[in-house]
Structures are given as C-alpha cells and as structure tokens.
Design a protein around this nucleic acid. Structure first.
Lengths: 193, 193
DNA sequence: CGAAAATTTGACATGACTCAACTGGAGTGG
DNA sequence: CCACTCCAGTTGAGTCATGTCAAATTTTCG
C-alpha cells in the first residue's frame, strides 16, 4: 500500500501542533492502515466502537435507526477527517450507530488503549485532540443553531456553500437526512433554484 | 470572599484527572474570582471574549440576536459548569453573543494567555480540557440529533428528566428558546400534562 | 398596591412531512 | 444491443406540528 498516504495524517496534525520527526514516527506507529470497499460497515449497533478512524481517502457516514425504524444520518465525512462513535469509543459501551464507507476508502485507525499510550509518549497529541474536540464542539453548536432557527432552505444553501464536494459524491437522500430534511423536501428546495 | 468555594473547581477537575496539591495551587492561582449581580452582561456582541468562566454559584446564559432581531438562547448553565463563547475566546475575534448572568453569581475566570501558561505548567489541565471538550462535543451531537428528529414535546420531556433544577430557576421563555420552541408552544405542551 | 413582565389562551397561517404515484438513468442479462 | 429491473429522485395532494399575532390573565417585585 502506498506509504506516502500516511503523510496526510501528519500534515493534518501539523496544522495545529509542531511535531518533530521522532514524534511523527511514534504517531504513525500507533495507527493501523485499513483499505475498505464501498458500503462496508465498520461498526454496527450493539458493538463497542473499537477505533477512531482518520480517513485518508474516500468517505464514510454514521447513522442509526430510531424507535420507528427510520434511518437518520449523524455525520458525513470525506478524506482528511476523523470519524467514529466517540461516545461508545470512550465509554466502551455498546454503540447505537452504524459506521459505513460511502466509497472505496483508506483509513488509519487507532484503539483507545493505543491512543492513551500515545498521549503519554507524545503529549502534543493530547494537545492536538484537545484542539480538535474544541473545534468540533464549536462547529456542532453552530450546526445545532442553524437546525433550530433556520429554514430547511437556508441550511441547504449553507451546506452547498461550504461542502460543495460532498454534494457531488454523496446521494441526495443522505444529504437530506444529514440536514434533518425529508428527501422530498430537499428535492423541492433544489427545484426552486 | 469565601475561599472554600474555590474548592468546587478543584473537585470538578479531580473527577477526570488526579491533581496533587502543588498542581491545585497553580490552577487556583490562574483563575480570578468575580462576583456578579443578576442580569449582568459578561460579554456583548462585537467584543472579544476574554474569559472562560467556571460558575461556582448562580448561573448564566449565552444568546444572540438573529438578522430579524429575534433572540435565541445558545446555552443555559448553572453552577459547576463552564460558560464562554469559545469561538471568540480561542480565535480572539469579535463575538456575536451576549453572555449574561441569570442569578447573582460567583465565577472563576481565566484568559487565553493564562490558560496557555497553565497548560505548560500543569499538563494535566490540557488533558482535562481535552476530556471536557470531548464530552461537550458528544453532548452537543446528541442535542443536535434530538432537535432534528424529535418533537418539541419529546425534547421538553428529556429536558425536565435531566435538568429539572434549571426549570425551577429559569424563566420558561428561556427554556423554550434553548429547546428551539416558541414560548407559546412550550406553554401548550406543559398544559397537556 | 400597582406597573411591568411572564405566561396562557385563542384563532389562524404555514413549512415541512407523509404517502403514493411517476420518471429517468444505471446496471444486468438474454 | 435492446428490453427489464431497480433505485434515486421528482411531483402531487393532503395533513399536522408548530409558528405567529393579538388579547387575556397571572405572577413578580419595587
């Protein structure tokens, strides 16, 4: 498998903390690379989430089925992003979620134990994840806010402004679910333009 | 001012990382205590958010005015919780939010520069905040999900189950706004019971 | 006690959902 | 290479939860 891809993770982390070569080596040694075909499940409800995944290539989504059996998409992530069920991963309790590739993908994965060790060995990683979660939290609050107070149309327009690549690569139904809209409604919104 | 209150912060942090007395001292030295009357603004739109606040006693909310001038509440926090506008605080860009006490309150506050120093002096704090943001992110995703896929009534019921104390101490209009419901609708939901 | 604020109630409007039918393009097999 | 199926997306009609606006009522607090 192409070793140069590992570099993407290091690049990404280096945006927020400055790593020396020794640290980079330790980090890369902590992750396992995995190649996955399209529409393959990395996690299913009832299982404990064993890994955080960094997507080097491809994409994935997390979703679940509610009490009525309806499917709702929590996250859609393409390359250079993390995906997991953090709640299950950190608590080591069974997950309610599916984790599934959207495309043929390559990921780097790390288990909670190895991550704990990595925090000890490379304290900058603790800093990196502190910053990562801080930003994720801020983003999530913004998304929460737009879901509460903006119309479906406004939310869709913001989405295409910021993530036009996702639109090209992911079925419309998934986008709709991610935005909290019925697929029919999203279709009508798109027609208006 | 009552010194014993400082202990609350240490207790709270000690739930997640084990501090020795030396570290506790450094942490407490980094925070400034502030007593604030009811309905006082700690931050207004246009200002840069200078502090993260740990509420020892009392409570606060963050809110903003949208383009139409309507007020929306982002967060409601009582004692033993953090409140701030993290986006402004970490980016040092002007905030869009108000931060206002709900009751007469006592807080411990810390500026970004002092917090950076504290991370250096007491690396466990970096770990603590990593865990804090991690949990905040997970909670925020859950709140997002319930806003998207549950009815106003379901959301209200979950709220009273988990935060019945907030209900007693905060005007209903605020709860409604926090839940993303019109105050009239919340009133009708409550009547049904 | 009285003014101001918060909450409730009523009447009505509407954005978005649901369900069902239709369309069109992609992939499959004869 | 053409029919056939399948699935995502679209369209239409009807419904419903929740919002809006205005008025009435209750609560709060100086």
């Amino acid at each position: 498998m192409d070793e140069s891809l590992d570099h993407k993770l290091i690049c990404y982390i280096n945006k927020w903390v400055k790593l020396d070569p020794e640290e980079e080596k330790k980090i890369l040694a902590s992750f396992e690379k995995q190649a996955i075909k399209k529409k393959i499940k990395l996690l299913e409800p009832g299982q404990v989430c064993q890994y955080i995944y960094f997507i080097i290539q491809g994409g994935a989504r997390s979703y679940y089925h509610d009490a009525k059996g309806d499917e709702h998409i929590y996250q859609i992530r393409l390359e250079n992003n993390w995906i997991s069920d953090l709640e299950s991963y950190f608590s080591q309790q069974p997950s309610k979620f599916y984790l599934e590739t959207l495309e043929e993908s390559i990921v780097l994965r790390i288990s909670p134990e190895v991550l704990e060790n990595l925090y000890e060995e490379v304290p900058k990683m603790e800093r990196y994840f502190r910053i990562l979660f801080q930003k994720a939290y801020i983003n999530s609050l913004a998304r929460l806010n737009s879901t509460m107070w903006e119309t479906a149309e406004e939310r869709y327009n913001e989405m295409i402004k910021e993530n036009c690549d996702i639109l090209q690569r992911v079925p419309q139904t998934y986008i709709a679910s991610y935005l909290g809209i019925a697929p029919e409604s999203l279709s009508r919104i798109r027609k208006k333009k």
